[in-house]
């Protein structure tokens, strides 16, 4: 017998109906990346956790999953940082303050801030992976006394690709944050580290028992970061990571984001690494 679920019609859910949001601020970070501040027009709060995503929709163009980059707040606005990479994001990049977008969500499992309570947090962000991690970083900064050390490692392709320039400076100057950044390719203007993100990890002095690593980056990065953390002696149990997949519906139906038995839009995008090890296609 199939395990059926009996649901009364009044509990059927309207899953695909977006809420309108207005863009209130836009800032261009790099040639390809823009930052947007939005507010839901119905005045409601998005109510998300760090690491979750929304389905952004433009009528006439479609929908795409986009990470939320702002920390949860109570004043009703939220922020997205979007790379121009195709037709849909090109249309978003043409939008200005005052323009409207559809929003569904927030969706998925973010970073479990209760699980992280009291721990040293090691942030490992590669490229645009810093976008969802910024939500967690700012959440921790908002609740600084609840967490141990905050160690941020951030790598970008080159110095022109670094996102959130003003905040990077704030993190750098904040005595409560240990901030390390690197670029893959240096140039004359760049005075800092040169090398891939994994070069930032070996020199770190970590309390291995009490450190949780939170990783987000391009798919290719995970394998190498995991090897580096393992050789450092960090247990798998202390690792969380966020996966990119094609999360088309966001509600566990359309099948595009499925890896083995797991729907990334439901069980992820943030996974505890021991769970992820059981999912063969994941990394």
């Amino acid at each position: 017998m199939i395990k059926t679920v009996n649901i009364k019609p009044e509990n059927f859910k309207e899953l695909y109906f977006p809420t309108l949001a207005e863009i209130t601020e836009v800032q261009q970070f790099t040639e390809k990346e823009k930052w947007y501040k939005l507010s839901l027009l119905d005045g409601s709060n998005l109510g998300h956790y760090p690491g979750q995503f929304v389905e952004v929709s433009i009528f006439g163009a479609g929908e795409a999953p986009i990470s939320i980059t702002s920390a949860p707040n109570s004043y009703g606005s939220f922020e997205l940082c979007i790379r121009e990479v195709g037709m849909f994001t090109e249309m978003i990049h043409k939008m200005k303050a005052g323009d409207k977008l559809g929003i569904r969500g927030p969706f998925g499992q973010g970073f479990d801030v209760n699980e992280l309570y009291g721990k040293d947090i090691l942030i490992i962000g590669g490229g645009i992976g810093i976008v969802p991690l910024r939500s967690l970083i700012n959440y921790i900064l908002d609740h600084r006394q609840d967490y141990g050390r905050l160690i941020i490692t951030y790598g970008a392709r080159n110095s022109k690709d670094l996102l959130f320039p003003e905040e990077l400076e704030l993190w750098q100057s904040n005595p409560d944050v240990e901030f390390h950044q690197t670029v893959d390719y240096g140039d004359e203007s760049w005075k800092g580290n040169v090398g891939v993100i994994t070069t930032l990890i070996p020199p770190l002095d970590l309390d291995l028992k009490n450190t949780i690593a939170c990783i987000t980056g391009p798919p290719i990065m995970y394998k190498f970061v995991l090897l580096t953390l393992q050789s450092k002696g960090l247990q798998d149990d202390n690792i969380y990571m966020s996966l990119e997949r094609r999360m088309k519906c966001g509600v566990g139906k359309c099948g595009h984001c499925q890896i083995n038995h797991s729907y990334v839009c439901q069980d992820g995008p943030v996974y505890h690494y021991p769970d992820l090890k059981l999912i063969r296609e994941a990394i």
Partner: peptide, 11 residues
Amino acid sequence: DHSFSHGNPEK
């Protein structure tokens, strides 16, 4: 029926 009712019951 199972696929569309478990988790998020789709209208």
